[in-house]
């Protein structure tokens, strides 16, 4: 954890929009640097037993976990080296290939203006807007929580296929396999969050899709930002109501039209 010298402070690179920069500025924070973490992990196949991906689902979950945690560790190191207090707006990119899982995280390190941070930086996929809303409401992000689960859709026996052909009936074994995989993915996400000491996970995103090269294997992945209340409890924020007509460039003045302008 290096101490950034004052002279380096202006050497800022950021992928934030001007709105986001101004928002950060309004709470007296600043962007520091673009930071990166990437990792590729191997998925070994079970020899050449002809079963292909059969049985590899556990390994892929494991490989996924390894790629993600290593990528998070790298982006965290990069952030610490830049003197950031945390990384916001992390773009999360996963690719599952036949023998490898690839995880790439890119975000912007931020910190309270001029203060080189010491200690473990947080990593979050929240946008600057969301980060500030949470911050103002008294919450702090802790890190990215991930969960993944890969399931092989069971083949139906010939008998079952015939039985189900004409009937409108639930395919219970399929339901069960898919349901269980979803639960497992979410459970892994939750236990990751608990491991960070979080009291919740916000903005969870998840994807479920068959692997491009093995259509009978479905991969579930879920991720979100683990958060915790900081110190003095939740602060309630009163939102202001805005009615907009379609496009943001030309808003009609409804107050004027309705004669309600004060």
């Amino acid at each position: 954890m290096s101490n950034t010298k004052r002279s380096d402070l202006h050497q800022v690179t950021s992928d934030l929009t001007i709105d986001e920069t101004l928002l950060l500025h309004s709470m007296d924070w600043e962007p520091v640097d673009i930071v990166v973490g990437a990792s590729v992990a191997a998925i070994p196949t079970m020899g050449f037993s002809g079963s292909g991906w059969a049985g590899a689902t556990d390994q892929s979950s494991q490989a996924f976990g390894s790629a993600v945690s290593s990528a998070v560790a790298r982006i965290r190191d990069d952030c610490a080296r830049a003197g950031g207090a945390g990384v916001v707006g992390v773009g999360v990119d996963f690719q599952v290939y036949r023998h490898t899982v690839q995880a790439v995280l890119v975000g912007t390190a931020v910190r309270p203006a001029g203060l080189s941070h010491r200690g473990q930086p947080f990593v979050s996929d929240l946008s600057v807007r969301d980060f500030i809303l949470l911050h103002n409401a008294g919450w702090m992000p802790l890190g990215l929580a991930f969960g993944a689960s890969f399931v092989q859709v069971p083949y139906r026996s010939i008998g079952t296929v015939f039985k189900q052909m004409a009937a409108n009936t639930e395919m219970t074994n399929l339901t069960e396999a898919m349901y269980q995989a979803r639960e497992q993915g979410m459970e892994r996400l939750q236990s990751a969050a608990i491991g960070m000491g979080a009291s919740g996970v916000v903005a969870v995103q998840y994807s479920d899709r068959p692997l491009p090269f093995a259509s009978h294997v479905i991969g579930f992945t879920a991720w979100g930002t683990a958060v915790r209340l900081s110190g003095d409890g939740h602060r309630y924020i009163k939102p202001r109501v805005v009615v907009s007509v379609d496009d943001p460039t030309t808003l009609f003045d409804l107050q004027g039209a309705l004669g309600t302008r004060g």
């Binding site: 709105d19 101004l22 928002l23 946008s127 807007r129 969301d130 500030i132 809303l133 805005v242």
Partner: peptide, 8 residues
């Protein structure tokens, strides 16, 4: 006028 919205 400069508007910075917290709307996503």
């Amino acid at each position: 006028t400069t508007i910075i919205s917290l709307d996503g």
